[in-house]
């Protein structure tokens, strides 16, 4: 095991796949010479050269379009969109073109590409550089959606995303970039569509994603130590494909289900999971399904204001306590 930051794991994942497959290429704004504005891709240009690691103009449609055209003609491009909020200026390419063209052409083409982006809040960037847009992506048929919570998963899930034959939206939660974690040495690939039980418990199942996973774990710790509540925490990891089995099995055991979502409330990913649990596990439930989310409000920038909106361990504890009591 090596200790790597979440940020370093991004570069490690890309490098691992570029070494094994010369069709993997990488493009984005400030990604080559500068190593990325979040320093996730430092050293790639030096190792793989300017034909494979390419700086682009500030042209998100060109970046995504180029990745699409390259992927349908034999390459496996990785494109970086600096902040996930910027998908709003190139969403046609993502939602209308990449996601639908395989289906519309009766399966004639595939799009083995990865769209990486820094997603989410907690970094005081304000409402246009802090959104959690995983639920935008989840709403479009034809896109796979991955959002890792730790360095090992960044490397393993990124590798799997690059190898995947379908388009993958890969959301890196930017407030986690500096967090260190154990990452297996050597080749590391984690399959997509497998949720991970990161803490076992018996009273309630908490489903969380990306930066909400460490917060849910902190809440579970407090629930155990201060309230005698045993919470199981499931790191959902992938929204599409969605590992409903791991979640349903967990909820069947605990009888209670809470989602912790960074996305704004309406149509957040937890709403879909809540409806699946309600429909398929209704008679096993011991209480209502509870969603802890960012409210349906744009994120403000000041520390106290942003913290007041994003789900905190304290809010998770309160919600679970209320459910269990």
């Amino acid at each position: 095991m090596a200790q790597l930051t979440y940020r370093e794991a991004v570069g490690e994942g890309i490098a691992q796949e570029m070494r094994r497959d010369s069709n993997v290429v990488f493009l984005g704004e400030d990604v080559a010479a500068a190593g990325g504005v979040f320093k996730t891709t430092v050293g790639l240009l030096e190792e793989f050269g300017p034909d494979r690691i390419r700086d682009t103009p500030i042209s998100e449609q060109a970046i995504i379009g180029a990745a699409m055209g390259a992927s349908m003609t034999g390459l496996r491009p990785i494109a970086e969109i600096m902040f996930s909020d910027f998908f709003a200026v190139c969403w046609d390419l993502v939602a209308n073109q990449i996601a639908k063209t395989r289906y519309m052409t009766d399966g004639q083409c595939s799009f083995p590409l990865v769209l990486r982006s820094a997603n989410g809040g907690g970094s005081r960037f304000g409402a246009q550089h802090s959104q959690s847009i995983e639920n935008w992506a989840m709403a479009v048929p034809g896109l796979k959606v991955v959002a890792p919570s730790n360095a090992a998963d960044v490397k393993g899930l990124l590798a799997a995303s690059i190898r995947d034959p379908d388009p993958v939206m890969f959301f890196e939660q930017k407030s986690l970039y500096a967090i260190k974690g154990e990452v297996p040495e050597g080749e590391h690939v984690e399959p997509l569509g497998v949720a991970n039980i990161v803490r076992s418990g018996t009273d309630v199942t908490i489903g969380a994603l990306a930066a909400m996973v460490p917060r849910a774990l902190k809440a579970a710790e407090a629930l155990q130590n201060e309230h005698g509540v045993s919470a199981e925490v499931v790191d959902v990891r992938c929204l599409v494909p969605l590992d409903t089995q791991t979640i349903l099995e967990s909820v069947a055991r605990t009888g209670r289900f809470v989602t912790v979502e960074e996305n704004p409330r309406l149509c957040g990913w937890g709403a879909e999971l809540a409806s699946i649990v309600a429909e398929e596990l209704f008679w096993d439930l011991d209480g209502p399904i509870v969603r802890v989310t960012t409210p349906h409000i744009p994120l403000p920038s000041a520390d106290e204001l942003e913290d007041a909106l994003m789900p905190s361990p304290e809010r998770i504890v309160e919600s679970v306590k209320h459910l269990v009591d």
Partner: peptide, 15 residues
């Protein structure tokens, strides 16, 4: 939409 995609196919052929 297809102008950037065409550029991507051209990039692929170049590569």
């Amino acid at each position: 939409a297809h102008l950037p995609v065409a550029a991507g196919a051209a990039w692929s052929a170049q590569y």
